[in-house]
Amino acid sequence: MTVLTLTLIVVFSLAAVAVKRVPAGQVYSLYRYGKQVRLLQPGTHVVLPLLDRVGHRIDLGGRVLRFDASLAETAPVQGTVYWQVLEPERADAVIEQADQLIRHSALDALQAETEADQQERLQMAARLKSSLNQQLRERGVMVTRVELDAAA
C-alpha cells in the first residue's frame, strides 16, 4: 500500500466517524474534553472525530419503574411509576441515576402514608406523583402516572 492509499483510508474513516445519526425520540449529549458541549436533536449531525464523544443517549419516550415498599405499620405496597424526560439538558447530569432517584423519592414519600382502601390508594398515588414531580422537575424529569397496588 502506498502512502496515498493509507491517507485516503484514514480520511474516509474519520469522515465516517464524524457523522452521527440520532433517531427520532432520542437526544444525544455531546461531550468534548469531559464537558457537555451541546445536545444533538434527532437527525444527522457532523461532529469532530477524536474530540467529541456521545455521553448519553436520552430516550424522550416514557419509561416504567416498578417498586416494592415495606412500610412500618402498613401492608407492603407495590407500585409502578411512569416517567419521561422533558428537559434533556437538565436530565443529562442525572439520567444514569434517574431510576434510583425516583425509587428513593417514592419510598420517602410513602413513608408518611398510612394504610389505605381503594379510594385512599388513588389519592395516595396522586400525592406521590405530585411529590415526585416537585423533587424531579428541576432535573428535567416528570412523572406522568403512579399506580399503587397492595402487595400479595
Rank of each mutant, 00 (worst) to 15 (best):
A93M: 05
R32S: 13
A93F: 06
A152D: 10
Y33R: 12
D59R: 00
D52L: 01
G79S: 12
T114M: 04
D149S: 12
R127I: 08
R66A: 10
E89Q: 11
D108R: 12
T144D: 09
D149Q: 15
L39I: 02
R63V: 00
A93K: 05
A116V: 08
R103K: 13
R121E: 00
A98T: 15
R121H: 06
M142T: 11
W83I: 02
T144C: 03
T80R: 09
R145H: 10
A116C: 11
G34H: 06
D149N: 15
G140L: 01
A106D: 04
T44A: 15
S130Q: 13
D117I: 00
K35E: 15
D92L: 02
E113A: 07
K129S: 11
R127D: 02
A93P: 04
L39W: 08
L65F: 06
L86T: 13
P76R: 14
R63Q: 11
L132Q: 07
L65M: 13
A112W: 12
Q84H: 07
Y33K: 14
V37P: 03
V94S: 04
V47R: 06
V143W: 13
H104Y: 14
L132V: 04
A91G: 00
A72N: 08
V47Q: 02
R121D: 00
L101H: 06
A109N: 02
D149A: 14
H56E: 06
R63D: 07
A93E: 03
Q97R: 06
V37A: 12
Q118T: 15
R137H: 08
G43Q: 03
A91P: 03
L40C: 08
V141P: 00
Q41M: 10
L107R: 14
A150C: 09
A91M: 01
A75K: 01
D99M: 04
V64L: 09
L128K: 06
N133K: 06
V141N: 01
L136I: 03
V64T: 09
V81Y: 05
V64N: 02
Q100T: 08
Q100A: 11
Q111D: 09
S105A: 12
G61N: 11
Y82F: 14
Q119E: 15
E87G: 02
L51D: 12
E96G: 04
V141M: 01
L40V: 07
Q36W: 04
P76A: 11
Q97I: 12
G34R: 06
R127W: 06
H45L: 03
T80L: 10
L122M: 11
H56A: 01
